[in-house]
Structure formats: structure tokens, C-alpha cells
Write a protein that binds this DNA or RNA. Sequence first.
DNA 1: TCCACGATCGGCT
DNA 2: GCCGATCGTGGAG
Length: 194
Amino acid sequence: MQNLPRSFYTQRTLTVAKELLGKIFVHKIGKNYLSGMIVETEAYLFNDPASHAFRGLTERNKPMFNSGGFLYVYFTYGMHYCANVVTYKEGIGEAVLIRAVEPLDGIEIMRANRNFKDFHHPHNLTNGPAKFAQAFSLTKIHSGIDLCGKEIFINEGNHIPKSNIVSTTRIGISSGMDKKWRFYIKANEWISKK
DNA sequence: TCCACGATCGGCT
DNA sequence: GCCGATCGTGGAG
């Protein structure tokens, strides 16, 4: 299966946010592969008060100002990480938050990473941005990594037709509520709730 | 120097 | 099902 090229990530951010649905996020750790199909995303644009990049470049959000195809991971709530795919052109500061994936390879490792024992509700393993980051062992140290590399990358996966993509308001923000920039695959049980 | 911001879990009701 | 605890970051004062 083909890894996504730079030209995929440098498209318009809202395009990438929708196109990422159905693609396969992969983190290679030693000889093990953690992978999952992306089922839910949120777009954050440069003129968007809910975006970390809204007030310009800082030490934390620096990776967001790379060209598309880099990873931006931030720490939140004193205990969690969230992972974003940087999009569009260098110097702009836009990204797509990965909110949920459907796990494929390395599920046992993901369970161990999250100390997850709830076998009655398997979808709770990766149905939230911080759950995804923890399951995939993504932390601060991965912020700024090039997704056109060999450690963390995204594969082609399946194309999701427009008719199967739902767009709604984003979650967990207190500004920018007018923008319907959360996207998920219709009738997929692995998306986050609310 | 202070204060707003934000995801998840566990424990309680 | 609701409630509290958790803390780094960056803007405002």
C-alpha cells in the first residue's frame, strides 16, 4: 500500500481533513506496527480563534508552520497528548486533529499502552484524540516529525465517498463554534461521542 | 504574575 | 450519569 506523498498534505486544509478519512495512520516502533483507519478529524485554519496557530508562531506550535505533511503533538489538561497532521503551505499554520481511528495492527500493544481492559466496549480504545495519541504512543517527542518518513506515516487505505462523510461543529473548544469543521465517517462505531 | 484553556478517568450518586 | 482532579502553554495585565 502506498504512503501519502507531500502533495497530499499541501492541499487545502478542509480538503485534507475530509480526504484523511479512510486513510491508514501508521506508527512503526522497532519491528512492531501500530496502525488504524482514520474515522474522525477536525480542521484548524490560520484565521481560526480555536487554532493554536491563531496568534502566530510560538515555541509549541512551531511545527504547524511547516509545509503540509508534518506531525504536531501538543500536551493538554495536564495529562494528555493530541496529534495533528500539518496541512497546506509552509508559513501558514494550519492542521487537522486526528480525533478517532479504527484500530488495525498492534491492537494488543495499544491496549497495553492505555492499560485498557474494557473488553465490553472495545471502541473506547481509540475513540478520542487523547486516546488515539496514547494508544499510538504519540507524545511531545514526536511533534515536528515528517510524515513523509519511515517511522510515522499515512497509507492510502480506502476512499470514502462524500455521501458517507458527516460534517458538524468541533468539540472541546470555546470559540469558532460557527464552523462545521469536524468530519467523520457515517455510521462508524469508532468515532468519539457527543 | 496571573488566568483561560482543554480530554479522560475513576469514584460517587 | 455527573464531578473533580490533572498542568503546560501563551496572552493579558
